[in-house]
């Protein structure tokens, strides 16, 4: 028995030593992180254009160095170009930077306001929609960007999300919403398109690829003609073709998850779609041409709700919503 105790004590001492080692290692990492954070802060205050020029030179120098190594080991000039171009294509398949996302989103946002009769000039309604939207955005899975919400002065029933955090709903849509949980469901669906980068992912496919490899340079050089070509494709995607059906279903699923985190009842979006169906039937509108069939969305949502949210309750906030709704003209 004594022997066993000694063995256990030795194990315990060993574990404690390991634990202490980990602690000091983490402490060292934290201190390092703090120092690097302070350095980054100082750098940000410098002129950004100066930073860009220096970085461009640094990247070019680094690239030249790596290419010269490949040359030394016998890679031909022609092959180097192929390697470089291939790396460019792979790069375009990687993440689009936040700056590029904001540019595309900003342009798309202006286009949306222009197409849908401008903003609805009702400060109280816009503030309310922003409060609901910001509440949901606070608990979504992508918080590194700022979300913005605007009501459009259009009777058409529609909602849009542009990359970079721009979300729009029409006055017409607000009129067929019954309570705050339904509005939250619609806004959460649009937020999900942004958190999942649906538009950007669609752009990274097929025919958009060529333009995306040069998107960074197009923005930095303010090459309007090239940029317009990219934006024409983005506009076509959002306003005419619409996203893949699978992306719409995914946004619906995520929307339920987010509103439940926030504390709204999970079936707000489902009820909104039932309302929409009742109001418009299956007749054609832009909403239907850019979204999957309303019946299939209702069916899928119903399945998710029954399987995962059967006993989940939450706030409807009917009274609060109606106190704002009566102000909509």
């Amino acid at each position: 028995m004594k022997k066993i105790s000694i063995v256990f004590l030795l194990i315990i001492i060993f574990c404690l030593t390991l634990s202490a080692k980990n602690f000091f290692k983490k402490l060292e990492e934290t201190l390092k992180e703090k120092t690097s954070k302070e350095e980054t802060k100082e750098e940000v205050t410098e002129d950004t254009s100066q930073i860009q020029t220096i970085e461009k030179e640094e990247v070019k120098e680094e690239k030249d160095n790596k290419l010269s190594i490949l040359k030394k080991i016998g890679v031909k000039e022609k092959d180097l170009k192929i390697i470089s171009a291939t790396a460019g294509v792979i790069k375009s398949k990687q993440e689009i930077s936040l700056e590029e996302e904001k540019s595309i989103g900003g342009s798309l946002a202006i286009e949306t306001v222009n197409r849908f009769n401008g903003p609805y000039e009702n400060e109280i309604i816009n503030l309310y929609v922003n409060l609901v939207g910001q509440t949901i955005a606070k608990y979504c899975d992508r918080t590194e960007i700022t979300y913005h919400f605007l009501v459009l002065d259009s009777e058409e029933i529609n909602a849009f999300a542009a990359p970079g955090g721009y979300i729009f709903i029409t006055k017409g849509l607000l009129k067929i919403v019954d309570d705050e949980s339904q509005l939250a469901g619609v806004l959460a669906h649009e937020i999900a398109h942004i958190t999942e980068k649906h538009i950007l992912k669609s752009l990274q496919r097929g025919k958009f690829l060529e333009n995306l490899t040069t998107l960074g340079a197009t923005i930095a050089n303010k090459d309007i003609s090239k940029y317009s070509k990219i934006m024409n494709q983005v506009n076509e995607l959002l306003f005419e073709k619409g996203l893949d059906q699978s992306m719409e279903y995914e946004a619906d699923k995520i929307a339920i998850d987010i509103v439940t985190r926030v504390g709204y009842r999970p079936d707000g979006l489902y009820d909104f779609l039932l309302n929409l169906k009742k109001q418009l039937g299956e007749k054609k509108s832009i909403f239907f041409s850019t979204h999957p069939s309303i019946n299939s969305r209702i069916d899928k949502l119903n399945e998710i709700l029954l399987n995962n949210y059967k006993n989940v309750k939450g706030e409807k906030l009917l009274k609060r919503f109606l106190s704002y709704k009566k102000l909509i003209e």
Partner: peptide, 8 residues
């Protein structure tokens, strides 16, 4: 190694 536009 990607094209120069990556620098931007």
């Amino acid at each position: 190694l990607a094209n120069d536009n990556y620098a931007s």
